[in-house]
Design a protein around this nucleic acid. Structure first.
Lengths: 111, 111
DNA sequence: GTCACATGCAACCAAAGGTTGCGAAAGGAC
DNA sequence: GTCCTTTCGCAACCTTTGGTTGCATGTGAC
């Protein structure tokens, strides 16, 4: 089964963009992230708190700033779960498509 | 780019379960869904409204009940977008893994 | 006609994403 | 050292959203 905290952590579009930015630049602070996002530093800080509780990022204080980096193993885990969900739906859709096709073929025989 | 309404529609865990139930039984009503879910009929009705606005389900009134079915093409589209996001992250993680490996190899040469 | 059941609508509540405002700690300029 | 800037953390507040209860309406079964 899927870990709901993980999913809800990456379910938010702002958090997805944050993870993207952190991956692209190899880490960052609440302030540096908010520069590249359409929300305030405080909103970013709250999201970082969510990501931290989900284990997707880790933070280390360094002087007057606090640097966040992505936990790549954990993110890979989350991505695997996402893939599982999508492939499960894919299989179900394909099964339905096959059934629909069979019904159609069946009905063509008896007008 | 990703359609945010689509993503947010399938981003909610209850709505995901609803789509699953609708696919499994080939359609259903707000009442029949709420029987199989831990929420009230009215909550289900609201979710069905969201899914309907996102184009993921369609409804047809039939007598005193209103029957909902999944728009499979649209859901397939949403799943494709999900797949795109996950594979984009996958590629990025792999690139980072390669870089990290290269750095490690480089540092082993100069103690 | 009456009774049961499914729906739709409204009011209300709690959590989450977002904002502004302020006080405190670290670093650099002088 | 003092001053100024920057970064952070905390609190109060607003809005949206997922959820509830309550009630009125419409439709099928008897």
């Amino acid at each position: 089964m899927i870990d709901d905290e993980l999913w809800s952590a990456i379910g938010d579009p702002t958090r997805r963009r944050m993870l993207d930015l952190l991956l692209a630049s190899g880490g960052g602070t609440a302030t540096s992230l908010s520069d590249q996002l359409p929300v305030t530093r405080q909103a970013v800080a709250k999201h970082l708190g969510v990501l931290d509780r989900a284990g997707l990022v880790h933070s280390t204080p360094s002087g007057r700033e606090r640097r966040y980096t992505v936990d790549e193993d954990r993110l890979a885990h989350a991505i695997n779960q996402l893939t599982d969900v999508t492939s499960a739906w894919d299989r179900r859709l394909q099964r339905i498509a096959r059934i629909a096709e069979a019904i159609e073929k069946h009905e063509r025989k008896l007008p």
